[in-house]
Design a protein around this nucleic acid. Structure first.
Lengths: 196, 196
DNA sequence: GGTTTATTTCTCATATTTGAGACATTATTT
DNA sequence: AAATAATGTCTCAAATATGAGAAATAAACC
């Protein structure tokens, strides 16, 4: 009983598969054990179609995580290389995180929740560590140049950074504030918040 | 197949019920559709015991939400009344939020996620609005006294405030930073972040 | 317009989750 | 130490979620 049996815009195989992945990321980010029915609804397809594209729930989750990794990594690395000034790098990375949207929230959870087991054998973990190392490096540079308050530690800077990105993403998902202004607010508060 | 069939410390009815509620809040906060088995595990009871205390899943969720409302409301209102200085009020409210722990995260989601329908007929919503009105009032006072930067809006202050509280709570759940220092960091960054 | 491809609909088998009865086991109380 | 209360174990029925076959339907492509 679907209200719109066939959408005006039709898409090819890749598009449908990707559409389902995008929907799954949105749903699983808020409710990891959600029934697949909810994912199908969000993607505007039937559950039957979903099952044709993915062997089982696990495969769908794996592909979501892969998509997230690729997406976030790409955006963040591009931002890192966008400048040689550490503070500008940090600013652009913040914007890149916000641009990743819910994928960034998911990405962060994937590697920072208590149930996550960090393994050097896991390639995803290695990739994350790489980004983390670059990020830490930028913060340390700023600390040495006295651009960051002595009152805050490296760990707290990371927490604040991720809190603001994720909070901003939630705000724009829930339409709490003008989208365009959000990035400015986020950077203003983050930079002030670390005493920059 | 439980490793510790009977715990050394034994508790009465209220304690067991409350223990299950506390466990359920932790589990559902991260995974709302989680099987009840997970909740029972976290509470160190069998699923059978859980079902003796709660008619069904829905009742458990209701009682979790009720507990969260009571808890958060109490802490936040006490903090509000702890001073007549708006900035001190705000500071104490931030600490109160952090002290609520995961309950605060849940509380915030309950009333701010996109799937939440706000109704004036719902008593919980009215209660939340009450707190929200007080909070807004405090911010407005600070804005009038030029204690808050003109660059940020009331809505953004709320987003930042909740982002930092929730981020701080996650950090302490995942043992990322010394618990004692977290509150200081949180207030430092929030107050700077709004230009106070 | 006819062919091909993708999606829906309907259906069904299987797996998992849920909720509860009956009784054994452990704690608490007196 | 006997009675009482709470929890665990084992079991089972009902509900829900998962995954897939078969045929109908819609869209896309010559």
């Amino acid at each position: 009983m679907r209200n719109k049996p066939y959408l005006a815009t039709v898409m090819n195989v890749q598009d449908t598969q990707q559409k389902i992945i995008e929907a799954a990321i949105l749903v699983f980010n808020e409710d990891p054990s959600s029934p697949l029915e909810k994912v199908a609804e969000k993607a505007l397809v039937t559950r039957r179609t979903l099952h044709r594209y993915f062997k089982d729930r696990n495969e769908l989750v794996q592909l979501c995580e892969q998509d997230i990794r690729r997406n976030c990594r790409k955006g963040i690395l591009a931002a890192m290389n966008s400048s040689s000034d550490a503070l500008k790098q940090l600013e652009h990375m913040l914007y890149a995180g916000i641009d990743c949207g819910v994928k960034y929230s998911f990405f962060y959870k994937m590697h920072n929740m208590h149930d996550h087991q960090h393994h050097k054998a896991n390639e995803a973990c290695v990739e994350y560590d790489e980004i983390d190392a670059c990020y830490k490096n930028i913060i340390k540079q700023l600390q040495q140049k006295r651009k960051i308050s002595k009152h805050v530690t490296l760990e707290w800077v990371k927490i604040l950074y991720n809190s603001i990105i994720i909070g901003t993403i939630n705000a724009q998902v829930n339409h709490l504030v003008e989208r365009k202004e959000l990035k400015n607010f986020a950077w203003f508060s983050f930079s002030k918040g670390i005493g920059a």
